[in-house]
Design a protein around this nucleic acid. Structure first.
Lengths: 229, 229
DNA sequence: TCAAAAGTGTTTATAATACACCCATGG
DNA sequence: CCATGGGTGTATTATAAACACTTTTGA
């Protein structure tokens, strides 16, 4: 009759998050510059350690909140890294997540306090440890996911134009898309609400604003509904 | 100047493996009947604990070898589970893997010693802890992967007939496939070697045997080659 | 000679892609 | 009145799906 596994080894578990954001310039990630050793001054994903009384999702949410001041960020766990010497300080495994955030909706102050900044996905500096590998895998996962399920909306403000949405998908998939084909495809999915409101900042004519319709989307999920762009 | 993270919590990490096999009856998984508490007599995935000096892949390989006597089994990590009470004995996280094995190529004795047995995917009993959830996610992942990349060959003996291959894909994807469309698709991928050898056990006419051509496949991987069934 | 599985192409339907012009308005 | 981005539809191509008969040979 066992009531503990005390003979078994224990290890430290880190959580590292790729925080994706999107603006006019394209797809970006949030990085922090380490101000402690080892690797002081190098760039790093946002991370932290798992506490014994929380789940991985809770830890990831906590870490995201600490840095951005935002709750309920969309996120997904994607791989657990375990190379023996991946962290030179001490044996540590890392569970990696990616998160999608509306880039306008975070606490600037916090980010400054933490020495964090946004970097275009095309110009990411060398990262510490195995964070390059994480980014690579996380980005691939994001691409695959967004072309199957419309999670991309999490990167946009609540109201957005069709062109913004198209630019977002172009940024994620890293390829140009045809305007008419894109709009036809999106409309055929029937998961957007067209508002009686226009964004006048971009042109004289103004362009209609849309919202993501979570209810319609959830209703469709029951079938084998999916998006392919 | 830090040279340890000693203040941080440590946890135990289990590795649980879904071992897939395939025979005339269809897709199967290998389960063990627990002969210790808690949950004695219930069915469980094959698992073990991470040791402090090995990677997760090494631990998974070790666990697979212990039970099957086979090295170099195809496997893939797919998710890390961390609910606080997922294991009632003690706080334990579990990194889950699925593995694909030629069902004829394992050590029967070992399997018997461990109280293990094969179960058709359609008739899996209730499993302990969160192993049902793992199986569900692992199976979905296998389905998605096999319809993109031809990993299914790992479930077959070295030489196999077209019909066997088709049955395998039907079992994994859980839907009937059209014989001619299937053969055309497979042939168009050009990753099989047709042998001058026939399997005479299944019919009077006999059917040609094929082998998977790993080299051709790897050569194609460089492009954006993929299989869709 | 017949039962049982092997092998083989074409037609149809659906999905993806390519492509160009008019519209509305503020300055 | 014109410059700027907004908005719209059709034709073509590529891919997927449906479909049935002939071949072989051991019993």
């Amino acid at each position: 009759m066992l009531n503990s596994y005390t003979k078994e080894d224990k290890v430290m578990l880190a959580i590292d998050c790729i925080i994706f954001g999107f603006d006019e310039e394209g797809l970006k990630i949030l990085l922090i510059k380490r101000d402690f050793e080892p690797e002081r001054g190098k760039w790093s994903l946002i991370g932290g350690f798992l506490k014994v009384n929380e789940t991985l999702d809770e830890a990831a949410s906590r870490i995201l909140y600490t840095l951005t001041g935002v709750h309920d960020i969309y996120m997904e766990q994607f791989y657990t890294y375990s190379e023996i010497d991946r962290d030179p300080v001490e044996r540590t495994l890392s569970v990696s997540y990616y998160a999608l955030i509306d880039i306008e909706r975070h606490n600037e102050e916090l980010i400054e306090n933490y020495n964090a900044s946004w970097h275009s996905i095309a110009e990411v500096p060398k990262l510490i440890f195995d964070h390059d590998k994480m980014l690579d895998k996380g980005l691939k996962r994001l691409r695959r996911r967004t072309s199957i399920v419309p999670i991309g909306f999490n990167l946009l403000p609540e109201k957005f134009t069709m062109l913004q949405l198209q630019k977002l998908y172009e940024a994620i998939l890293d390829k140009p898309l045809d305007k008419r084909n894109f709009i036809n495809k999106i409309n055929s999915m029937d998961i957007l609400i067209k508002l009686n409101e226009k964004d006048m900042s971009s042109s004289t004519k103004g362009s209609f604003l849309y919202m993501f319709d979570g209810e319609k989307y959830n209703a469709k999920l029951t079938d084998n509904f999916y998006l392919k762009l």
